[in-house]
Each structure stands twice: as structure tokens, then as C-alpha cells.
Write a protein that binds this DNA or RNA. Structure first.
Lengths: 295, 295
DNA sequence: ATAATTAATAAGTATGAATTATCAAATTGA
DNA sequence: TCAATTTGATAATTCATACTTATTAATTAT
């Protein structure tokens, strides 16, 4: 009659919403199918809305169910994190920050942050994950991540961005390429070569910026390969499959037979920004932000 | 032993955290004090942390409890909000209808629908897309669209159609064409002219209807141009490349040097219909349909 | 046709959240 | 100083209900 929603309901709901199949969902949850059926039904009664459509042989979500699914994902993630935080604080630690980053942030910004944290707040724990721009935004929105390092100018509502590092671009050439820093004047000297770039969907802003650099010199680059890994890009350059344009700091940390020509005169910069949820209350995140102000 | 946190725990915890007094908190929750005690204790066991300090005669929060209190306030609020929203979406008060339409529906039916929605259901969002008949049918079948406005008499199985607007046809002539409304009797007065019509594949029904109008007058029109855009058709007429026959409402909304002669006596009508998937469960769609009944 | 799916229903069980009754410890008030 | 109160924590018991198993109706597949 007058039941209340419980977390159990959410866990069950999510299983069904993911499987769209009561028996399989019940198996995954290690409960019986009839039990699951009644719990979902009860849930629908409490909420006063149909969540699933059970047609002939097919289970699907209603719009309300669709909406609830997203919310439940967030709530359960947030809850997991809260439990962890409570435990850490109870143990005298400050908590945990879950950090996502683009590979190119690992050369400079992220290591400095970690060093700073270790020194000033040794009780703050961190988890690190290398993710694409898009994956980071998603993870932050669903509260699987507290802080991201991305190359984006705009982010969805509810998130804040702040630039933390500006980098020049560098041309990456095979070691024995005829052009060198001394004779480099303008990028159109290599306009006819094949270009190897990071994929658009890995970082659309990077891609657009590189194209605009070429455009400013009056040519459209012929892009022969795209990759999401700097390692791969350098390897391809090493093997003379093309040349690349990347943020300058990427030159450190790789052992490759390639040379970098920093293009200081070019006005475009590779901007690395941090992103976080505006209303994130993770106390350990605050400490991170304080530190990043000073870097 | 291996219990799980439930929302009940949070509600209980918050009561104690606010009152800092087990008996009073229990009273507020309408449960017995011992029950509350055991539940809080269980909660602490699950989380692996002390949440309250019970000193002699005084209950207070630990730092971990302090943190959890803020989180629980957030979580419970967020949950309330989510419940409300799910209910609203389920009732069709909130949500999205994805509408497709032929350009010619934009003069009249679609704007009226949008105005009505805005007034009666201001929380229902709409997305609009101008598409051909065929593209709309495809989009509805694959659930990329909820509602279409087409000129078709028959639609694939699984879809429903319903006429929403009937329009007369008008002759479209260059502004300085010798024929005018006063002297217009029958369409065979222009039987020898070139005709400019909408393409068959944009709207086969329109095409057939126009041909049947001519047939009724005993001639077969010579079609010199076809287009999918009213704008284009009018432009061609303006430049004396032919004359056109179009649904009358199209005369509004364009700034062209052409004149319209409405052919009221002709029995054929340009019928605009709405199409939707019979088993579409989008509650916001129902609201649309209700409104369209009254237009 | 028969067999094998599906989810929903019905009836019974057992877990565990609640209750009442009680306790020890602290506070209060003569 | 010693009852009288108050606190939260136990202990024993009750009872609600989340589960189970058994079964059914409805589809789909063979």
C-alpha cells in the first residue's frame, strides 16, 4: 500500500533497464524472476508511472523509464563514491579525487598536481584514468569522475571549465627530414606532406585548431592517418608515413627517432582545461582546485 | 552481516543527525527508539565507520558523519525531485515530441500546434525537422520521429494517419500574366503552358492529384521543371519559366512577384495528414494529438 | 501439432525490521 | 545520600514483506 522506494528498487530497475529481459536481469541479481517482477511492479506503483512496456515478447523503457535510468545511474554512482568518502574520512583521510585526463596532460599538469597533493595533502587519495574528452565529460556528468583535463572550449551546462595550461604547437618530423629548426620559416614549407593527427572524436578542438593553423598558411593539409595515441603518431612519423602537429610538451617522455620544431610564432595555442561539476561537494576536490590555482 | 545500505538508513540517519537525540528522532520518525538505535548501528557497520559519538548524555557527529549528513541531504532532495519528474514525464506533462513536416505544413498547421503546446503544456519540448514524405515515414518507423505531417493517403502497416487540414489548390502565375482571377473559368485555359510542380518523390500524392486535376479538364500538362522547395517553384514562375499548381496556403509567407488564383470549384483537395506509430508510448505525443483534434 | 520460450500470478517461507520489556549509566533533585 | 528520571543499548518477540517455489497464460519456435 504505502511502501517507500528503496535503493534495492533502483538496483533492480537498472538491471532490467539494461537487460530489457526479466529472467536475465534476475539471474544477474541472483534473485528469482517472480521476485523481480513484483518489485518492479511495486516500484511503478510507488512512482505512479509505468516504467517498462511489456509488449508481446518484448520489454522496453517508457520515456519516464528512460529518464529514470539516467538518474539512477547517477544516484548509484554518487552513492558508491559517498560510501568510499565516508570510510576514508572516518579513517582520518581527506577523501578521494577521481581524475580523468587526456594523454597529453600526463607530461606536465597531472604529475605536478599529484606531486603537490602528495606534499600538501598526503591524505587525499587519487584515482587516475586516461580518457577522451567526451568520455571525461560523460563520467563527470554521471559522477564517476570528479575532475577532468580536457581540450574543449565549451562544456555542457552544470560543468565548469578553467584553462590550466597553454602550450605552443610543434611540428613533428622524422629525424632525418631535410627541414630543421634553423631553416623553418612557415608551415607551408611542408604543405605537400601527409599529416598524421589526433582523431576528431578524441579531441575535436585540437583537430579544428590544427586545421586553422594550416588554413592561416593558406593550405588544407592532407590527413593520411588519425590516432588517439601520441605514441602511435610518433611511430608513424618515425616510419616516414607522414608528419604531425602536436602540443609541444608531448616531446618529453617519448623515446622516438623524431624531431620537434616548436612553432612559437603561430598564434594558436593548445589549451588544456580542467573541468568539474559545478556543484561537486567532494572536499578533496576543493584541495585539488586550490593547488591548481598555483601551478 | 552482509547488509546493504538502504534509503531508510539515510532517512533515519538524517533525523538523528538533526536532532542529535535518539528518542526525539525516533518520535519524529514514528518508530521506537530501540529500532532506531539498531538501524544506525547497522549503518555504521556497513559503512565501516563511526558516524556518531555517544558520550555521556550527549550525541554528536563525527567528521565522517558531518560529511555524510551533507551528502544525505543532497541525495534525498535529488531523489524527491527525480520522483516528481518521473511522474510528470509519465503523465506527459514533461518531455519531448519530435516532429517532422513538409514545408507546406509550416504555413498553418505546425505553427498552430506549437502555439497550442506552448500555452497548454509549456513544459513539453519539441524538435522540428523539415523532411520529405518518405523521410518522415522512415524516421517514424525507426523511432527517430514521433509525429509527421505528410501528404499521403496510405502509410505502411503499424502507422496511423489522420487528415488535419484540407486545402484548395491555387494556380500560380507570373504577376503580369494576362489571366487573372476575374477571367479564370477553368484550368484548361492554361493547358498549353509549361508546368512547374513538386517532385514525385517529395510527395507522390500531390503529384498524382495535380495530374488528375488536369485530366479532369481533358489535358495532360507539360511539366518543365520539378522541385522540392516552394521557394524555388515560385522563383521559376516569377521568371516566367512556367506556371504552377500548389496548395493555396503556400501563398502566405513568401515575398514573390507571382499571383495566386484559388480554384475553389475544383473538387480535389490538398490533404495534409498527421502520421504516427500506432504503438508510440510517448505520453507527450498524446498531448499533441489531443490538441490537434481541436484545431 | 508440441516444445520451449516469455512474464505474471498464487501460495508459502524466512529474513530482518520493527515492537515491547528491560537494563545500566548518567543526571537531577530532594 | 538515595529515589526518580532520563539517556541509549540489549534481549526477546512479533510481524511485515521480500523472497522462494509452483503454476499459469501467452507467445514463439520447431
Amino acid at each position: 500500500m504505502n511502501y517507500q522506494i528503496e535503493l534495492r528498487h533502483f538496483v533492480y530497475f537498472l538491471a532490467v533497464a539494461e537487460e530489457l529481459h526479466y529472467r536475465k536481469a534476475a539471474e544477474k541479481l541472483f534473485i528469482s524472476q517472480p521476485g523481480l517482477s513484483t518489485q518492479i511492479k511495486q516500484m511503478e506503483e510507488i512512482l505512479g508511472t509505468q516504467l517498462f512496456v511489456r509488449d508481446k515478447k518484448k520489454v522496453s523503457l517508457t520515456p519516464a523509464g528512460e529518464f529514470l535510468k539516467k538518474e539512477v545511474e547517477f544516484i548509484l554512482n554518487h552513492l558508491d563514491q559517498t560510501k568510499k568518502q565516508v570510510k576514508l574520512i572516518g579513517d582520518g583521510q581527506l577523501g578521494e579525487v577521481r581524475i580523468g585526463f587526456l594523454g597529453s596532460a600526463m607530461q606536465n599538469v597531472v604529475p605536478n598536481l599529484l606531486l603537490g597533493l602528495k606534499e600538501k595533502y598526503p591524505t587525499v587519495h587519487t584515482t587516475l584514468e586516461e580518457l577522451s574528452n567526451r568520455a571525461q565529460i560523460n563520467a563527470i556528468l554521471t559522477d564517476r569522475l570528479d575532475l577532468g583535463f580536457v581540450r574543449l572550449s565549451r562544456v555542457p551546462k552544470g560543468l565548469d571549465v578553467k584553462p590550466v595550461f597553454e602550450d605552443t604547437f610543434s611540428l613533428v618530423l622524422p629525424e632525418d627530414h631535410p627541414l630543421d629548426a634553423k631553416h623553418f620559416k612557415n608551415i607551408n614549407q611542408v604543405a605537400d606532406e601527409d599529416f598524421i593527427l589526433f582523431s576528431q572524436d578524441y579531441s575535436p578542438m585540437y583537430y579544428d585548431t590544427v586545421l586553422s593553423i594550416c588554413e592561416d598558411s593558406g593550405f588544407v593539409p592532407h590527413v593520411s592517418h588519425k590516432s588517439v595515441h601520441a605514441q602511435t603518431i610518433f611511430k608513424l612519423v618515425e616510419n616516414k608515413l607522414g608528419i604531425a602537429i602536436v602540443p609541444t610538451t608531448l616531446q618529453y617522455g617519448f623515446q622516438m627517432k623524431v624531431k620537434f620544431i616548436e612553432m612559437k610564432k603561430i598564434k594558436q595555442r593548445a589549451v588544456l582545461s580542467m573541468v568539474w561539476k559545478t556543484d561537486n561537494r567532494n572536499p578533496a576536490l576543493q584541495k585539488c582546485m586550490d593547488l591548481l590555482q598555483k601551478l
